[in-house]
Computed example of a mutant assay.
Amino acid sequence: MSQPSLELIEKEITDFIRRIVISEKRNDQLERSAYIILRILSSNGPSGVKSLAEALQLDISTISRQAAALESKSYVQRIPNPQDKRAYFYQITTLGEEELDKNKQRRFERLGKILEDWSEEEQLAFGKLLQKYNQHVVERLKP
């Protein structure tokens, strides 16, 4: 890969991340970590701290702290692990699903406004390139 390509991609990814962070703060969204955990629990069902930490490639103490914050807001609840009664899973609550859905809808609306001048083909190509990038990151960063 050429240096100019790498420089362009690095700059645009940095700007992309910065704009997402600014947008989340400006629009009173769930914190990024909360959104991601709720999204995983909504999609995959109840999960333990260890499996969440592995999925997010974070340490268990970080996930425990973030999950505790979600639990204090009643967005998740602890349920017993059926295989190990000493352990527990986090499960998204109805309130957590509602908050996730509201945040997801606001994200859809913002994306819709940002991309309204793009053709359907451009939007789909952009989505597929982001998907390809994300899949490669996961594959290349596996321990």
Rank of each mutant, 00 (worst) to 15 (best):
G96Y: 05
S43I: 12
I63W: 03
V21F: 13
K104L: 14
K142Q: 10
E122H: 04
L115G: 06
R65V: 14
K85L: 09
D28K: 14
A67Y: 01
E71G: 04
S51C: 04
K11R: 14
R19Q: 15
L141V: 11
L8C: 02
T93K: 03
V138Q: 07
E116R: 13
R86Y: 08
N103I: 08
Q77M: 06
G48W: 00
K73A: 10
L70P: 03
L141Q: 05
Q29H: 12
R110S: 10
T62L: 15
A87C: 01
R26H: 09
N103L: 12
L70C: 08
Y35N: 02
I36E: 04
R19K: 15
Y90D: 12
S51V: 08
L141S: 07
L58I: 07
R19Y: 11
I37V: 09
K25V: 11
F126I: 00
P82G: 12
G48I: 01
K132Y: 12
E98S: 12
L124V: 12
D117Q: 09
Q135K: 12
P80F: 06
Q83G: 09
N44E: 15
K50L: 01
S2Q: 15
V138P: 00
L38N: 03
L124Q: 15
Y133E: 01
E10Y: 03
L129T: 06
S33E: 11
